[in-house]
Write a protein that binds this DNA or RNA. Structure first.
Lengths: 131, 131
DNA sequence: CTCATCTATTTGCAATAAGCACTTATGGTT
DNA sequence: AACCATAAGTGCTTATTGCAAATAGATGAG
């Protein structure tokens, strides 16, 4: 996102794994398809690097979150179809708890920021622990 | 967080920089103090590694987000006091926009998950793009 | 027929950033 | 003297990403 001298990456989400688990929970799919859906869904900041997606999928398989099998297609090269395992489903549920916690932390942070740095917005009292 | 064979880190926030900027916007401070406040605030998942905080602060100085000066204390070792620059303030504002965007993405993701994977919760219709 | 293009997956390499352990140092307490 | 809290830092390893490129099957244009 930011190619300038400052190289901060305050957007990073680490949301790729949960989103992949989610998409595969909806329906088994192959990598290329998942990459397209990721772009459509727009849950991740910026473009998704195909290499990252494929590597994540392979790792997910190593850890038994998914299983894969080659699928010959009439058209185009063969593709590896991934299917979520029950372990993957469990991890998705855990991930979503973490996502919810994270959402709450972001909300808390936003509230703090607005109260402390933008008090003009809606005359909020300070709500920092011990002032 | 997870020391087991599965090494997924779906919590990672990359929120350290924005929170440091925020704390320093409230008031100049030194590293040790910031580490304690980070622990109190509990905006980051898990414990904050002091080394990471100190390193981030040094980097922030290199990029002119903060300036530092040594402060002799009557008691204890000297400490480096960091003060936010106007550039740091600007970056904080940008960060908070990104935090808000991220919060919205998490909300969207949670909605999708609940509609598609937990439809029993409140009989929601699918809201995925094109089914 | 050949070349380009889309589909599909993979590897190699460099850079980034974090985690953990450890070192250094001051000053107060027991 | 030993210990602890404060305070900041270094060194090393590992995880993960981003980018570029390799490979390869199938289709359509010229």
């Amino acid at each position: 996102m930011c190619k300038c001298s400052c190289s901060w990456n305050f957007t990073a989400d680490r949301l790729l794994l949960p989103v992949l688990l989610f998409l595969l929970r909806l329906k088994p799919a192959h990598g290329y398809e998942l990459i397209q859906k990721l772009a459509q869904l727009d849950l991740l900041e910026g473009e998704v690097d195909p290499a990252t997606v494929y590597r994540n999928l392979r790792r997910m398989e190593q850890e038994a979150l998914v299983v894969s099998s080659w699928e010959a297609t009439g058209t185009g090269p063969a593709r590896r179809k991934y299917t979520l395992t029950s372990r993957g489903e469990e991890l998705l549920d855990e991930c979503m708890l973490a996502v919810r916690r994270q959402k709450e932390k972001l909300e808390k942070f936003i509230r703090l920021y607005e109260n402390e740095c933008r008090p003009d917005l809606q005359g909020g009292e300070s709500c920092l622990p011990q002032g």
